[in-house]
Amino acid sequence: MPANLNFSFADPREAKNIILTCAAWVIALAAAVPLLSVLYMLVSTGGARLGLELFTELPPAGFEMGGGFGNAIVGTLVMVCLASAISIPLGILAAVYLVEIAPDGRTTQVTRFVAKVLTGFPSILAGVFVYAAVVVAMNSYSALAGGLALAVLMLPTMVLTSAEAMAMVPRKIKDAALGMGCTHSQMIIKVVLPTAAPGILTGVMLAVARVSGESAPLLFTALFSNYWFNSLGQPTASLSILIYNFSSMPFDNQIELAWTASLVLVLIVLLFNVLSRLVGRPKV
């Protein structure tokens, strides 16, 4: 039996192997520390203020005590819904083109690549773009502009995840539908989309989760408001901008509210993340 099959700590190769394994454990565990610290701070500092008045009251001014951020939650929901209403249908239609209509076309290749590049598009530039295109034209900051900026960020994710989900639909099912005399679009609407629905929903949930936490694109499109949401054409509050504004204030009350708002925001984002896992799980 060759000697090097015997395990020995003295063997430099073995020793190196063990040291590296220990190092990998330490580094990997260290990588998990920030998340635990963030969650701990959210629950301990933010959880302390959790109560019903947060959802029904307006943000406090200067030295005021108490208060809540009901208007910011409403604002975030309104803008995320607006962004979804624009980017989900558009994204799915574009994905249909990429996967079903012209899978090998030049347009498809370019669009796919552009969508991939756009997923790494800095979110603040979506804000700059919408500022230049919408805010300047309307001469006012508005929920509409905020929603559009979020839609720009959602669209590429929607296209790519829907395309991936549709690509998983087996060829046989599609051929069967065509063989029964379906037109191409009937096959897509009645067979491909329902089959790919769980995958598409996963993408929707992930895209919604991503944009609900976004703040950079809202900074100078939706701005902020201390009042309840009343129209799409007005500046509108959002949770993320509230956190940003309050974090730099010298008042303890505002800082505590910033932590609580962070907790609520993270819960919303995680909710959509968990939903994406649940709907996407293949049913056996």
Binding site: L35, S215, S240, Y244, S247, A258, S262, V266, N273
Partner: peptide
């Protein structure tokens, strides 16, 4: 999942955590 959850934490929340932790 723990590492993926890091990606889900919004940027402002990391900013707040950075300032106070």
């Amino acid at each position: 999942t723990v590492i993926e959850m890091l990606a889900a934490i919004p940027s402002v929340v990391f900013g707040l955590w950075g300032i106070f932790v």
